[in-house]
Amino acid sequence: MHIDELSLDELLDLNEQICLRIDYLRARNDMLMLSHLRLGQQVNFMAPEGRVFGTLIKLNKKSVVIVTEDKKQWKVPPALVNVVKSV
């Protein structure tokens, strides 16, 4: 398929299908990650300020809440969270 040959209506339809597929894949990835997370786990994620470490305090359908040692709370998508492994 060459997108240069598609009409505006065909491109809009293709765009809608792509967006739906992206939403589905993100939701599936979030659900998979949520199944591995437990309250009280030590986790980390990348923020604009750098890597943030904290404790998982709430699990939602589309986000998790993490509290850091300085009591700052972060609400992030589950797919961005990494569990900190004990050594």
Rank of each mutant, 00 (worst) to 15 (best):
H2Q: 00
I3C: 05
I3E: 01
I3H: 07
I3N: 06
D4H: 06
D4R: 14
E5H: 07
L6C: 01
S7P: 09
S7D: 02
L8W: 14
D9R: 11
D9V: 11
E10I: 07
L11K: 10
L11Y: 09
L12F: 11
L12Y: 02
L12H: 00
L12G: 00
D13W: 08
D13K: 09
L14E: 02
E16C: 07
E16M: 08
Q17W: 09
Q17G: 02
I18Y: 05
I18Q: 00
I18C: 01
C19M: 09
C19S: 12
C19V: 15
R21Q: 04
I22V: 08
D23W: 13
D23F: 05
D23Y: 08
L25D: 11
R26Q: 03
R26G: 04
A27E: 03
A27V: 05
R28M: 15
R28C: 13
R28P: 02
R28I: 15
N29R: 13
N29E: 08
D30R: 04
D30I: 05
L34K: 09
L34D: 00
L34Q: 04
L34F: 01
L37I: 07
L37Y: 03
L37Q: 00
R38D: 03
R38K: 09
L39I: 13
L39N: 04
L39K: 11
G40M: 12
G40K: 04
Q41A: 11
Q42F: 06
Q42V: 10
Q42C: 06
Q42P: 01
N44V: 10
N44K: 15
F45C: 15
A47H: 15
P48Y: 12
E49Q: 15
E49T: 15
R51P: 06
R51D: 02
R51S: 01
R51T: 07
R51V: 14
R51K: 14
V52I: 14
V52A: 04
F53R: 03
F53Y: 08
F53W: 07
G54E: 03
G54V: 06
L56Y: 13
I57D: 11
I57R: 02
I57C: 05
K58Q: 04
K58G: 03
L59V: 04
L59K: 02
L59E: 03
N60V: 00
N60G: 08
N60P: 01
K61H: 07
K61G: 06
K61A: 10
K62A: 05
S63L: 13
S63M: 10
S63E: 09
S63K: 08
I66M: 08
I66D: 03
I66P: 03
I66K: 08
V67W: 02
T68Y: 13
T68L: 04
E69L: 14
K71G: 01
K71N: 11
K71T: 01
K72F: 00
K72L: 08
K72A: 06
Q73E: 08
Q73H: 05
W74G: 03
K75D: 11
K75A: 01
V76P: 04
P77W: 07
P77L: 11
P78H: 06
P78K: 12
P78N: 13
P78E: 10
P78R: 02
A79Y: 06
A79K: 13
L80Y: 03
N82G: 12
N82P: 00
V83P: 01
V84H: 05
V84P: 04
K85R: 12
K85P: 00
S86R: 15
S86H: 13
V87G: 09
